[in-house]
Design a protein around this nucleic acid. Structure first.
Lengths: 161, 161
DNA sequence: CGGCCGTTGTTGAACCTTCAACCAGGATGC
DNA sequence: GCATCCTGGTTGAAGGTTCAACAACGGCCG
């Protein structure tokens, strides 16, 4: 078992502190100004960018990195607000399609300005161009590490079959 | 209103994807292997490092970047598990002190190994030393941007008094 | 066709977080 | 001393997430 040395500890804590404070800030901003948490905002964004502003639940889940259960609950709420509506899927009778309504699109447009401003103010404006490039690389590396990990887990699961 | 250009969008999405997947992974690991979410783990860590393994609630809240309400609920749960106990504060009769129990310390020790392994595996092992230094700088910059922001908000609030 | 398995999506319970309201105790000013 | 305000901490309700269980459908192979 290899523990973190002093320097690693510092990086780790600085990172976690920044991330929690940052996401907390964004979440609060959206909740306050637009009445939805960031996860719900991401759902609306994903739908708005899809062809026909509609997606099957499972695709939406994978785009948003959300579990199907979470998405199901979330869409139920968004539907109650009238921002999203559910349709039957013509090609697969199990399927369900979530579609952004006009009202939902308007709400998203209204929410976007404040959200983007917050992101710019607390991320892009406090970092140099070099740091931004570095952050992109770092993010991709971490992401890749997590995806291959999942693949490895699967490999292990099936190793003895 | 200045939107994000294509390059900024890429950085932003890569970053959010990495962060959500990474924290999700850590949270799930801790929940599965030790029966607590990461926020609760952080509370135990903070207490274990405090003199006498005890802290006043408000100090604990600030160390953990948690709201007092959240901490109160969390400590209630930790107390029910027998991992933490509450004591009266001698110097301030409003105060409440959370103290790590022996059992709690043992649980923390048991949880730490798996958690640190996960952090090392998905953060330190996938980044180069230069990237780690860069990540530390970036984190500090973002953190600083958020703290001065709060100060600014306060200044605005009281500007006309 | 019929059985079996994997996938899709939903549901309810348990848990965590947030928010607003609140009580109790310190601190300040008169 | 007392009114006022601020701080420390808790509480309950409302909302969000997770997990396990489930129903319904598609795909595959005999």
């Amino acid at each position: 078992m290899r523990w973190l040395n002093a320097e690693e500890q510092q990086v780790w804590r600085a990172f976690m502190t920044a991330v929690t404070k940052f996401t907390d800030h964004l979440d609060r901003q959206l909740q306050r100004d637009s009445g939805m948490p960031m996860a719900y905002y991401e759902i609306l964004v994903a739908l708005s960018e899809a062809p026909g502003r509609a997606l099957r639940m499972s695709e939406l889940a994978s785009v948003c990195h959300s579990s199907r259960s979470r998405l199901s609950h979330a869409v139920a709420r968004l539907e109650k607000e009238g921002w999203v509506e559910r349709r039957a899927c013509p090609s697969d009778r199990r399927g369900s399609i979530a579609a952004l309504t006009e009202i939902g699109f308007g709400v998203l447009e209204a929410a976007a300005a404040g959200h983007v401003t917050a992101v710019r103010e607390h991320l892009f404006d406090v970092l140099t161009p070099a740091q931004l490039r570095s952050l992109a690389e770092i993010s991709r590396a971490v992401d890749a590490g997590l995806t291959t990990e999942c693949a490895n887990v699967r490999r292990e699961e099936f190793a003895d079959l």
